[in-house]
Every structure is written in structure tokens, then in C-alpha cells.
């Protein structure tokens, strides 16, 4: 760990002006600093900021403070009742101890679990732009099959963000100059392209203050996470689904995917193709065809393509059954 300065932000306004790297739960940042994958000169501790509340918004949704822990968020009765997919996604992630520490803002910004990113002696364009990508042609079982580039094939590891993507969450921030903005989660993350080191649209010193959920979506909520062991493993494929039926047909389907791409993946053409359809396997297959039309395996992760198809179909079958 490289020596760094430490300062504690006393209020939201000053946090961004303190010109340092924010630290919340530290469950990701500290690990990376120990390995000197991340080497901030200064840490700004934001854990004393008053961002731990979950409050109702005027339009019937919820505003989740950036410092609400993953454990508290998953256990909140409103989340469990109205946003079940989110509660389930959170509980599918990490471990009890980690969820107690991990925060909403930090979870959104956690970095990839690519092993080559974590090993400073290996080439990695995300860690060291221009050095190459160790995962291409290497061990890439956990890597992306959608939206990859020849510079980076990493995935975003969050479960929470996948559910939030399906729920059309909006990220609220405050910039260094004190101005605020609201960024739809669908516009928050970036694909790797030629600059995999830039993972989202945040500016230097821009603080996440909250995540806003719109008013609840009716329908069946599912979060299905497929992984190499029953708990405490990142998703190989995950599907967040909110599906509403009407008259035996699919009226609305919100579908987001984890483990497939550099960001929580959502493809509205998949959802449109399902609307008005009967819940039949043939129709689910067509949706999967659209989702995976451009999917590209890297060798070790080829299985993710059929796995995503099968998981999507099973989730849709489950969410539409008995309708």
C-alpha cells in the first residue's frame, strides 16, 4: 500500500473539494490498495456524511443514501416488499460480513474481479492503459461475452447494480463545483472500447449522494444468480427480471443481466420482443436469440452463452407460470 493522506469529509458540499479518492466501506478499494493496483495519494473518508437514509420520494419511489449498507438495504421492509428483485440481488452478493460494510455507492463503483487486473505484474489495459490485456487468450472463465473490445473483456461484478438496472434506477451526484445531477443507471456505465480504464461517466471528485428508485413495478420479481459455488462467488450469469402478465400474455418485462458484460446489461429489444407474447419456451428462445445475437466467447467462457440462454428461459418460465 502506498502511503497516502487521509481526510474526513464533514459535509457533502466539501467532500468533492477535498481532492481525494472517496472511501466508503473500503471492501474493494482497500484490497486494491494493498496490492498497489490502486494508489491514491489521498483518501477522503465519506462515512460520516449524512447519507444513510432511505426516504420516500414525491413520485412514490425511494431515495437510497449512498452510504446505506448492502445489508440494511436488503433488509429494508419497503425494498423487500416493493423491490424484491433488489433485495434478492443484494443477498446473493458477497457475504454477511461484507454486506455489513459495503455501501450503495461503493457497490456501484466496485471494480472488476478480472485476475489479471488484480496482478500488477500482468498486462492490463484497465490498470495500465496500453499494456495489453492478460485475460484475452488467458484464463477468462468469468469474463464478458457481450460488449467486449479487443482492449478489455472484463465484467462488472455487482449484483445490486443488475437489479437496479432492471428497476430504472437513477444515480444522484454532486460535482466538485457543488452542482448536482441525476444520471439514469442505463447511462452511468461505459463499455470498455478503447478506454477500459474509464468505467462510468462520473467526473473527477463527483460524489454519489443517492440512488433513486422509481415507483414500484408490479409483477413477478426474480433474481437468479448462477455461480461456481452455492454462495460467496461472483455471478457467471445473473438475471434480474420483473415480469407483469396480463390476460395470459406478457405485458411488461424488465430484464437485466450480470456476468455478461462490462456493465449491467439491458437490451430493450429483448423486452419488446416479449411484450404481447404468450409465455412459451419458443418465445423465450426468440428473446434469447436477440439477447445473444452478438455474443462472443473467449474460449474459457464460451459456456456463458448457452448458460445465459438457459437461465433466461428458466427465469421467464418461472416468472410467468400460472398466469
Amino acid at each position: 500500500m502506498r502511503p497516502f493522506d487521509y481526510a474526513r469529509a464533514g459535509n457533502v458540499a466539501e467532500a468533492g473539494q477535498m481532492a481525494g479518492r472517496f472511501i466508503a466501506g473500503g471492501t474493494n478499494l482497500l484490497d486494491l490498495m494493498k496490492l498497489e493496483v490502486e494508489t491514491p495519494d489521498k483518501l477522503v473518508d465519506i462515512t460520516r456524511l449524512p447519507l444513510r437514509g432511505i426516504e420516500e420520494t414525491d413520485d412514490g419511489g425511494l431515495r437510497i443514501g449512498a452510504l446505506v449498507s448492502n445489508a440494511d438495504l436488503a433488509a429494508d421492509p419497503r425494498i423487500r416488499r416493493d423491490y424484491e428483485v433488489l433485495s434478492r440481488a443484494l443477498l446473493a452478493g458477497a457475504s454477511g460480513q461484507l454486506r455489513n460494510k459495503a455501501t450503495t455507492g461503493g457497490n456501484l463503483l466496485q471494480r472488476t474481479r478480472c485476475s489479471y487486473f488484480y496482478e500488477p505484474s500482468q498486462p492490463c489495459n484497465k490498470r495500465e492503459p496500453g499494456s495489453g490485456c492478460g485475460a484475452i487468450g488467458g484464463f477468462n472463465r468469468i469474463h464478458a461475452v457481450l460488449g467486449t473490445s479487443d482492449k478489455c473483456i472484463a465484467t462488472h461484478p455487482s449484483d445490486m447494480a443488475v437489479a437496479m438496472r432492471a428497476l430504472d434506477a437513477v444515480v444522484e451526484t454532486q460535482k466538485v463545483d457543488g452542482s448536482t445531477r441525476a444520471i439514469a443507471l442505463g447511462e452511468f456505465y461505459r463499455l470498455p472500447g478503447d478506454t477500459p480504464e474509464i468505467e462510468n461517466v462520473l467526473e473527477q471528485g463527483e460524489l454519489i449522494t443517492a440512488v433513486r428508485l422509481p415507483k414500484p413495478f408490479a409483477g413477478q420479481h426474480r433474481y437468479r444468480k448462477v455461480r461456481d459455488r452455492a454462495s460467496y462467488a461472483f455471478a457467471l450469469v445473473s438475471v434480474a427480471a420483473v415480469v407483469r402478465m396480463d390476460g395470459g400474455k406478457i405485458a411488461e418485462a424488465r430484464l437485466a443481466f450480470g456476468g455478461l458484460a462490462h456493465m449491467p446489461w439491458r437490451d430493450e429489444t429483448v423486452e419488446k420482443a416479449l411484450i404481447g407474447q404468450e409465455p412459451a419456451m419458443a418465445n423465450f428462445d426468440k428473446a434469447a436469440d436477440i439477447l445473444l445475437a452478438e455474443a462472443k466467447g473467449q474460449g474459457e467462457n464460451d459456456f456463458k452463452i448457452p448458460l445465459a440462454r438457459r437461465t433466461l428461459k428458466a427465469v421467464l418460465a418461472d416468472a410467468t407460470k400460472g398466469a
Binding site: 438457459r310 437461465t311 418460465a317 418461472d318 407460470k321
Partner: peptide, 11 residues
Amino acid sequence: LPRLPEEVGAA
């Protein structure tokens, strides 16, 4: 996966 039955899900 390559050799599991086609029919996925509980049904």
C-alpha cells in the same frame, strides 16, 4: 451444460 436436457426450468 452441453449434455443436459433441452428442457430447462421446473416445468
